[in-house]
Amino acid sequence: MSRQAILLGLLLAAFVVAPAFAGPYLLSVMVVVMYFAYVGQAWNIMMGFAGQLSLGHTIYVGLGAYTAAALFVHFGIPAIFGLFAAAAVAVAAGSIIGALGFRFGVKGVYFALLTIAFAEFTRILFEHFTALGGTGGLFLPVGSRDSFDLIHLRGHPLMFYYLILAMCVGIFLLCRKLLNSRLGYTWLAVREDQDAAAALGINVFRAKLTAVMLSAGLTALGGVFFAFYYNNLFPNQAFGMNRSIEIILAPIVGGLGTLFGPILGALILTPLGEGITAATEAMGFKAAGIKQLCYGLSLLAIVKFLPEGVWPWLRLRLGLGDGEEGE
């Protein structure tokens, strides 16, 4: 077994046994860590693997969240079925954005702008969508907190804790498999040089579209979790630009295109944000945006000192070799 696998095993074991020792606050922070590791991993497929910058990625969180929540609130459809609809809606949205952008050769920054435009447009749409609560929000009926009802995703916080942990493990294994597959190589080639990729027989349009669709669908599952965990949805939160930024910070800080990057980034950033919030509150002043400011500063530091992210640097420091995690 490689040392990377051992490290990962230890981390997983820590998260599995943590509920036996940690209090509810710490557990709630760990849920947030895992949530950002999960959506960061999903975003990383598009940016880190296929090189397509999505700056409006929260559109997929929001669509997934609203779809599953609306089906539950209005039609009583359990989350376990709703999640398929959620993923389907997000994949459809991703296909439209991707097809538009890639068909007309919208590249780089301009593609990123297109993704922001779509997310903002959807936010405004949902703010006027009164059937789904509009700006007033959509609320899920809170059930018994003692049950472990995975079908309806109602119940004890520990259920959500282990659910998001399982999602993190699942998406990690999936991404690892993808990186060692033909599709993964195709994405990396497209990320590195589209003309060279095409000259080697790769359908660049299809490769990029596949990345967007898969990333969108997986992100939407994160959205379903978000909706049923927090029980309320507001368009400016679900589709807000700042949410999109939050999603991409962990993989950037941790290391774009790596499997550990999103996990490590979330492990660094979330406690940092929580710590700052707690510290400022303890000092008796409420400074709106201080968390964002610190995120910004840490991002600056990363870009300046570790442009490839923390993980590639740490991997060398720990003597884990410079091979991909999959090897």
Partner: peptide
Amino acid sequence: VKPFGNLSVEENVVVGALR
């Protein structure tokens, strides 16, 4: 030349073989 700069030499060629 248009190498896949961040991939290893072998990975570059693997992409070709995956045709």
